[in-house]
Structure formats: C-alpha cells, structure tokens
C-alpha cells in the first residue's frame, strides 16, 4: 500500500521535471545551442546527484512547517501539489512546485488542527519574495561583468559561441544539481517520516540512508519528467517574457543557479555562520521565480523595452494564487480522503 501512496510524490516529481528543467536548459535547447537529448541527460544526472547528496537541509525546513505524520496524509498533500501544478499549468499560469507543496502542507495543518510554525512560514514566504529580487540582482551584476569582459576580450563570434555552449552545459549541470537539492523536498519531503526504505551499506563502505533512497526515487521521477515531457516547454520558454540571446541565457541560468544554491547549500550556510555573517535560510524556492527574476533583471538593465508586462502580470497572479489554491484543495482532498475513503490522514 505504501508504494501506492508514493505514487502521488512520483507524479509531483514527474511534473517538476517536465516544467522546471525548462528553466535551466530551455533557452539553450530553444536556440539550438544544445541538443535536447544532451540537455535532458545532463539535467537528469544533475538532479539525481543534487537530490541525493544535497536535499537534506531544505527538507528539514519543510518538516518544521508541518510534520505530515501519516502516509495517507503525505499522499494527499503530494497529490494536491501535483494537481495544483497540473491545473495551473493548463490554465497558462507559470506555477511553482515549492509554493504548491507549502500551500498543501498549510492545508494539512489547517485540516488536522496542527499548528503552523508561523516563523518558518514567514521565512519561506520571505524567501519567495526575496528569491526573484536576488536573481534579478545577480543577473544585473553578471550582465555588467559579461559586457565588460566581452568588450575587452575581442573574442571571435565563433569562439564566443563555443564558450557559451560549454558554459551552458556546465551552468546547466550545476543548475540541475541545485534544482535537485532545493526542490527534492517538495517531491519527497512529506514522505520522509513514513519512508519505507531502511539504511543500507553498499560494498561494506558506502552507507545509503533510507531518506537518500527515497530522494533517489523522487529524483528518478523528475528525470523521467525531464525526458518525457520537458521538450515542448523547453522550446517555448525564454521568449515569453523577454527574448534572450545565448549569452543572455547563460547569464540568466547562472543567476538562477546562484539563487538556488544560496537557498539550499548547507556548506554556504555554515561558511557564512563561521564568518559571523547572516546566512540565508534553507528553504525550497521556486526555480521558475528565480529564472523569471533573472530574466526581468536583464530586461530592465537593457532598458525594459522588450519586457512583456502582460505576461509578467499573469506570472505575479500565479505566484499569489498557487499556495492559496493548494491550501484549499489540500483541505478538500483531506476531507474527502478521511470521510469518504476512510484514510488515516493524521496520526494522533
């Protein structure tokens, strides 16, 4: 039965892979700088590695928001997030898996009468506001650096093309790792307390925890989503808000990656703490929000003429709607699950 319940998480992972990989490799594939098969393979490997080796920190924060303690509850919460993502996507609204899962967890707290940690909720919501702003800031700085360097390096157009391709592959791989590390909590975080996996030791040396195995399963679902459904999204992304050249795409993806790393790297957090500096919280931020913030930053510094403000308005509406829709839908589905299907959605 537990494997059936995990299916909703895998569905959510699949939809995350189908939508969010386009943020990383969309422009590169859309402009034919990188072939889809190459992009999908790199993204899949990056996501799997990031999820397994870097996903723990963000998961703890989600756990602090609301500890979904029954497997049927986890199933419903993940299913709600998946349905919200699918529904909003069909409505043409850019959607964040992070916002959907947080909304669904708050809905679970609301339905079960569990307390919502307001401090954690405020931290997460603040990060959602701050992430696109930070991405825009990173993109502006990177854009200025790139212009300065390009003006001085006198690189041949063809050499620039070759360096951009290599850059897109490396930054894309890093972005995929960061996406896996930051967003695996959205997919599998709610199943951690009820994980069916036990710790195993491979070859007498390599210890793989149950959580890592769970994350690997979620990451594989993301990878399948990337391979099966992200091509169409990849080939249309990038030109919706502001038309990007390959160099601008590299800048935007790098800014997006820096934001995801900022909000998911335990190493960075430890380093900043040791230096006595304020460290960013480890929270699941939206890959879509980060990429849109970065595109907006580049668009603004280029004079803001090519920005599609109508699309931007729809994006903002999606950001407000997603957690609200997810919270309400979660409440409704939990009610149905408990009262119609007699599922135990909370352990008392």
């Amino acid at each position: 039965m537990i494997w059936f319940f995990l299916l909703s998480g895998l569905f959510l992972g699949w939809s995350l892979g189908a939508n969010d990989a386009a943020n990383i490799f969309g422009t590169a594939v859309g402009t034919r700088m990188i072939r889809f098969r190459v992009a999908a393979t790199i993204a899949s490997i990056g996501v799997v590695l990031g999820a397994v080796f870097g996903g723990a920190g963000v998961t703890q924060t989600l756990g602090a928001l609301g500890a979904v303690n029954a497997i049927a509850g986890s199933f419903t919460v993940a299913l709600t997030a998946g349905l919200t993502v699918a529904w909003m996507s069909r409505s043409g609204l850019p959607v964040s898996t992070s916002q959907a899962i947080v909304g669904a967890i708050v809905g679970w707290n609301w339905f079960t009468g569990s307390p919502t940690d307001h401090g954690t909720l405020i931290t997460i919501v603040s990060a959602w506001v701050f992430a696109p702003v930070l991405a825009a800031g990173f993109a502006i700085v990177l854009y200025r650096m790139a212009r300065w360097w390009l003006a001085r390096s006198r690189l041949h157009l063809l050499s620039l093309d070759a360096y951009t391709r290599v850059g897109l592959v490396f930054v894309g791989a890093t972005g995929a790792y960061a996406l896996g590390a930051n967003n695996i909590a959205n997919v599998m975080g709610v199943f951690v307390p009820a994980s069916p996996f036990r710790d195993v030791t491979l070859g007498g040396a390599l210890r793989v925890s149950g959580t890592e195995q769970l994350f690997l399963l979620g990451a594989l679902a993301i990878a399948i989503g990337i391979h099966t459904h992200s091509y169409r999204v990849m080939t249309t992304v990038g030109s919706q808000i502001f038309k990007l050249t390959p160099v601008l795409a590299l800048i935007v993806v790098l800014a997006h990656t820096l934001v995801l790393v900022t909000f998911s790297s335990q190493g960075l957090q430890t380093l900043l703490h040791s230096l006595g500096l304020p460290a960013p919280p480890l929270v699941p931020v939206s890959s879509t929000q980060a990429i849109i913030g970065a595109i907006l930053g580049v668009g603004l510094i280029k004079g803001g003429k090519g920005i599609q403000y109508g699309t931007l308005g729809r994006v903002a509406l999606g950001w407000v709607m997603t957690p609200l829709v997810a919270a309400v839908l979660s409440f409704v589905l939990l009610f149905v699950g408990q009262n119609v299907f007699e599922l135990q959605v909370v352990a008392r």
């Binding site: 041949h156 063809l158 050499s159 093309d161 070759a162 391709r165 290599v166």
Partner: peptide
C-alpha cells in the same frame, strides 16, 4: 570539447 574548439578555430581561419 577539444573537437568543438578545433572546429571553431578552423572556421574562424576560413572566414
């Protein structure tokens, strides 16, 4: 990657 850069240099020279 070496192939990519070699091809690029050759084409630059041809242009």
């Amino acid at each position: 990657m070496t192939v990519l850069f070699r091809r690029t240099r050759e084409l630059e020279a041809q242009i």
